[in-house]
Structure formats: C-alpha cells, structure tokens
Design a protein around this nucleic acid. Structure first.
Lengths: 167, 167
DNA sequence: GTAGGATTGTTTCAAACGAAACCGTTCGCA
DNA sequence: TGCGAACGGTTTCGTTTGAAACAATCCTAC
C-alpha cells in the first residue's frame, strides 16, 4: 500500500470529516437558506410558492409556452409544473388552452391579472437578488457567476436526469 | 412618473426577468443538482439518505452527541433529526441511550457497525467533493469558500429560523 | 389507413417534509 | 417542597414531493 508519494491529505489531518468545511454541504445550506427567504417573501407578497413564481417568471418573458417549455426553462419536472400551473390557472393568473396544432400540448400565457402581478414580481425579485449580492464586491459577483456556470456543468454531468430546485 | 435619473437598469434591458441569469435561481439549481448526485451515491453505496448521512458524519466526528447537538451541526430541524436517528438506530448503525444526567436528552454514538460504515463514508464523500471541485482551479476553490461564507451570513440574516438542506 | 410506438400533460401513490401538538423531564423560584 | 415555565425529543397532521401509471394525441411506417 502506502506509496511514497505526496498524497495531498486532501482536507485537513484526515480521517474525520468536518461537515462545516464540506463544500457540498455548505452549498446546500446556503442555497436552502436563500430559497427559504425568497419563498417567504413571494408568499407574503403574492401568495405564490416558488414553483408558481418560476412559472410566472418564464411566462412573463416567453409566453406563449407549453408545459414542456416551462419544464425546460425552470429545471422542474413535469408533475411539479402541472401542479403549479393548475394553481395559477385556478387563481386567474394564467390562461391555459389546447394547442390546436397539437392537442397534447398546452398553450400557457399570463392573463391580464397575471401580467399585473408579473410587473410587481420583477422588481421584487431584482431587489432580493440585490439584497443577497450586496454582501459581495462586483468582482465577487462575477466570480460567483463563473463558479455557478462551471459547477452547473459539472453537476449536470454527475447527476442523471434533470435539476430540480427551490430557488 | 419617469424621473430623469440614471436608474441603473440593473440587469439587462429590464422589465423582463431572465431566469437563467437570476443568480438565486442558478444557485438553487446547482445546489440541488449536486445534492441529487450525492444522494444517489450515498443511497447506492450505503442505503443512506442525506439526513442519515449527515447524522453519521457528525457522530463520526463528534460522538457522543445529543439530538440537539446534531441539529446544531447539520442545519436540520429536530423532527428530521429524530427520524434520521430512528432509522439509523433501527439499522444498527447508531446507538441511542438516555443521558443519565438529564433524562430528556439522548446520547448518540456510532455502533461498531456504524464506525465501519463511517470509515467508508469519509473517503467516498471526499472523492465526490473532489469530483465536483475538479472543474475549478485552486484559486476558484478558495473563491467559492469565501463566497459561501459571505452568502451564508447574508442569507441567515434574511431568513428567519434555521437553514435546512439536502446536501 | 391503421397498428405500434412515442410524446404530452395529469393523476395516483407512497414517502418525506415542516409546523405544531405532545409527553416526560428538569429548572427557576417562591 | 411544589408549581409553572422551559426544554428535549417524538409523534401527528396536512402538504408537498418524485416516480410511476395513465389517458389522450400524434407520428411512423407499412
């Protein structure tokens, strides 16, 4: 065994793992903390869950879109999208009709009321993003962007199917 | 309305929000992708869920510990910890007894079998962390560390209670 | 044109979740 | 000593989740 090489002794002494220094764990904690903060405010401001908010965000930018389009743009599976859309339709924020060219597909768009909400959603989202990033320098924000891009590619290679999320 | 000021036009043109450029969303997607990849492997290798894995990690390093200790060190609420511990005890990986000094408290530790599993857990976790970070330069890993520290503090200030997670 | 297979979105199912209720124990304090 | 509040951990409750089953529609190719 024990080769005479410069085995880097990866983290610290070794053999015991300090969760607080384990980057995947820390990434998860930070992400969930941010998501929770965002979720609380979306709920308070608009009564929207994060899946619902994501659907609104995509439709505000890309309507009309099908459920599959939403899946692709939100990293949510189709069951989750279906449920979120159902609630938004029930709440009158989103219109849903069949695509006459392919009756399997939905054609989703914001209703008048939905557009009104969307116009409030965007500034709130931007403000919250700013609030989070305030703690970073402009350079660090750029670093974060780069890191997320790289980690995203790497994580997608490691994970099998799609990338679910909570915001 | 339209004041004549240099409104920064925060992100891009404005008024529509591109989810793919929204950092909180991207953070969530990356984190969940990583968690999913990790979860799949912990499950395959040891039959452990992420909450269970976290408890093992803490006990391997800090046993003996109470449930409250585990909560503090894993960013999980006490219900989740209670359930994870119950499964680990049922699986014979963790021993649980009452603290004679305070009968309300648990004293948790790894069993012999649990220690055996723990010794396999650590290298797997380290290997997966390395696999994720492989895509980054040493500098970028340091940046990630710094960013997570700052964002953690900021997110904790924004969120109310504790910081849940999935790894 | 029609059978078999693929695709879209909904629904069902069991598992996991967070919040709150709960129970037993201990502490603070008169 | 004894009573109420506080605490630690478990359990319950209703909700949300992902995976799989499903129904409806469309496409392919014969």
């Amino acid at each position: 065994m024990a080769q005479i090489t410069d085995e880097p002794v990866a983290d610290e002494e070794n053999d015991a793992l300090e969760l607080g220094r384990f980057l995947p764990y820390r990434l998860s904690v930070v992400s969930n903390l941010v998501s929770k903060a965002f979720a609380r405010r979306y709920e308070a401001a608009f009564g929207l869950s994060i899946p619902e908010w994501r659907v609104m965000a995509v439709l505000g930018r890309y309507a009309p879109a099908s459920s599959a389009d939403i899946c692709a743009r939100t990293a949510m599976d189709k069951a989750k999208v279906s449920r979120a859309v159902a609630r938004l339709v029930a709440g009158g924020l989103v219109s849903r009709k069949d695509n006459p060219l392919d009756q399997r597909q939905n054609v989703l768009a914001l209703s008048r009321k939905g557009r009104g909400v969307y116009q409030q959603i965007v500034p709130l989202a931007r403000a919250m993003e700013r609030e989070v990033l305030e703690t970073l320098s402009a350079d660090e924000v750029r670093q974060l962007d780069t890191l997320l891009t790289k980690l995203h590619a790497r994580a997608e290679a490691m994970a099998p199917g799609g990338g679910e999320g909570v915001d």
